[in-house]
């Protein structure tokens, strides 16, 4: 039984479906990437998993328990933590207050502080005053404070320097390995994702077009980039200088 099992998911805005018949899974301790060109339906799929976009058809189970009927807040309490593309932080709160809200304790748990030692230094600073990288760190820390069974991260690298992004992927790896947490990420930079994840689902035209382990997908990446991902997502041989 997978940690997250999505079957026949059809979802969208209003009556118009954006994703159709999506099927994917995430195992405990596994890092899975959802790849695809702009408009492929990656973000909508994540929003449907966390409940922010209503399902028109399909079923989502977490640890074998159906969560389809749960509100977004109940899904979060059931163990799904979603770090959205806009991070949805609380600009007027301090870092300490954000952590206190997430953890129900005055300090973040030791293992979260191990992952993000800078949290202690930033404690009294307002979230609005943090840099982009610090905000992304706080968004991840806030989600991890709830000790989720599934962590869903949308476009972690958006607006961040490659150096900063490269610092976050090992953290996700550790979370998956040490906490047994399943991690599902949406990432536009395919080459970055392939370096860190275990498995890949490629989305195109609102549905999953290909799935497989990184080893299975790596030889096919040029073909997939040409067919589904677009040239900007993965530089093909011809594009390389």
């Amino acid at each position: 039984m997978s940690l997250l099992d999505v079957r026949g998911l059809t979802a969208g805005y209003g009556a118009v479906p954006v994703v159709r018949d999506v099927g994917l899974s995430v195992e405990r301790g596994e890092l899975v990437a959802l790849l695809g060109a702009n408009g492929a339906g990656k973000t909508t799929t994540l929003l449907a998993i966390s409940g922010l976009v209503g399902l028109q058809a399909g079923e989502i189970t977490l640890d074998g328990r159906p969560v389809t009927a749960l509100t977004p807040a109940r899904r979060a309490r059931a163990g799904i933590q979603h770090v959205p593309e806009d991070r949805s932080l609380f600009p007027s709160l301090t870092v300490d207050e954000t952590i206190r809200l997430a953890c129900r304790t005055r300090r973040a748990p030791g293992w979260v502080l191990d992952l993000f030692p800078a949290l202690e230094r930033l404690g009294g600073r307002r979230v609005a005053a943090l840099s982009g990288g610090e905000q992304q760190m706080l968004a991840l820390a806030r989600a991890l404070c709830r000790d989720p069974s599934l962590l869903v991260v949308d476009e972690m690298s958006l607006g961040l320097a490659p150096l900063v992004v490269n610092a976050f992927f090992p953290v996700l790896r550790r979370v998956a390995a040490e906490r047994g947490c399943g991690v599902l990420i949406v990432e536009q930079h395919v080459h970055v994702a392939l370096r860190w994840v275990d498995r890949v689902h490629v989305m195109a035209g609102g549905t999953v077009a290909a799935s497989g382990t990184v080893e299975e997908m790596r030889p096919r990446i040029d073909e997939l980039a040409g067919a589904y991902l677009g040239p900007s997502a993965y530089p093909t041989e011809g594009d390389k200088p």
């Binding site: 922010l52 807040a73 933590q81 609380f90 709160l93």
Partner: peptide, 14 residues
């Protein structure tokens, strides 16, 4: 205060 800043953030936090 958090909800006033971002209701979506609050909901995603549970």
């Amino acid at each position: 205060r958090a909800t006033a800043d971002s209701a979506k953030g609050s909901v995603l936090l549970g």
